[in-house]
Design a protein around this nucleic acid. Structure first.
Lengths: 139, 139
DNA sequence: ATCATGCTTTACGTTTACGTAAGCGTCAAT
DNA sequence: ATTGACGCTTACGTAAACGTAAAGCATGAT
């Protein structure tokens, strides 16, 4: 309140988070976040020994966790997430990236087909259950 | 050819498979199939010590592997797969099953949202790559 | 008769993704 | 000056999902 700016209203460029804040926001443990750093998935700034997370780090954490929800391994997630940050670079690099993207897309589309099929079958089982339940109750 | 029936045309009720046949068909190792049995996911018939797989076992293996592709743990898969075989049973059992189905459905729908979002972002990155590639080549 | 093939069990090894202390530094508040 | 709150590193532990020998039966072919 010293300079007329509220505590929760910080200039966008300077917005940072502590490890505990990110952990709370994404509902993971501190250990998990440090582990991702260990595996090279995050590279927060250090002020002394303390980790300081910038918007870029926060976005990456979000991508990592979504990758996890999708069932990818951390190694796979590493290649995926790095694609977002990749600099234009040289032609070979770009072609490689495009191939990676193709592969990932194929995997994801297969997964979606699996999901849709499973949802259909769940609906079947559900219907069977409800039928059985009706039969039990009207008996 | 003895009785006018081709070798690959067997009465449906008697169709069975060896462990190696199933392994080849689904591209998993024998170890994996035995492991699933160890975890109670499969219960093939035994003729002596040898495992004999019936259509029911084959279907279950398919379900298990699809569950794996979807990123579920074997424990989760166990509860899912058992839902398919569940007998009508009593009311409490049915209600429990319906709840499980609701949970699974919610999870799967979340996953599908994740997938769609990821696919959109992959398309973005791909577009960026292609733009960069064009820039490089027309230079 | 023995050899290869296919199946079996038992059991220790491995990787992934963290959990869980243990022990210590730092800073603000009481 | 001590107490928390929060953070750090180091390091051993663990559950999941198999891999990988090792060693042995059974059976059909040579």
């Amino acid at each position: 309140m010293i300079d007329g700016v509220h505590n929760d209203q910080v200039a966008l460029e300077t917005q940072t988070w502590s490890i505990a804040e990110l952990a709370a926001e994404y509902d993971v443990t501190l250990r998990t976040i440090r582990f991702y750093e260990d595996r090279g998935l995050l590279n927060p700034e250090r002020r002394g020994t303390v980790r300081v997370y910038h918007p870029r780090d926060r976005v990456r954490l979000g991508l990592i966790l979504r990758g996890k929800r999708l069932g990818f391994s951390l190694d796979e997630i590493a290649t995926i997430v790095d694609m977002y940050d990749a600099e234009p670079g040289e032609e070979g690099q770009l072609v490689y990236l495009l191939n990676q993207i193709g592969t990932r897309r194929a995997e994801l589309e297969q997964r979606r087909r699996d999901i849709d099929e499973t949802l259909r079958e769940l609906a079947e089982v559900e219907h069977r259950c409800q039928t059985d339940l009706q039969a039990l109750r009207t008996r």
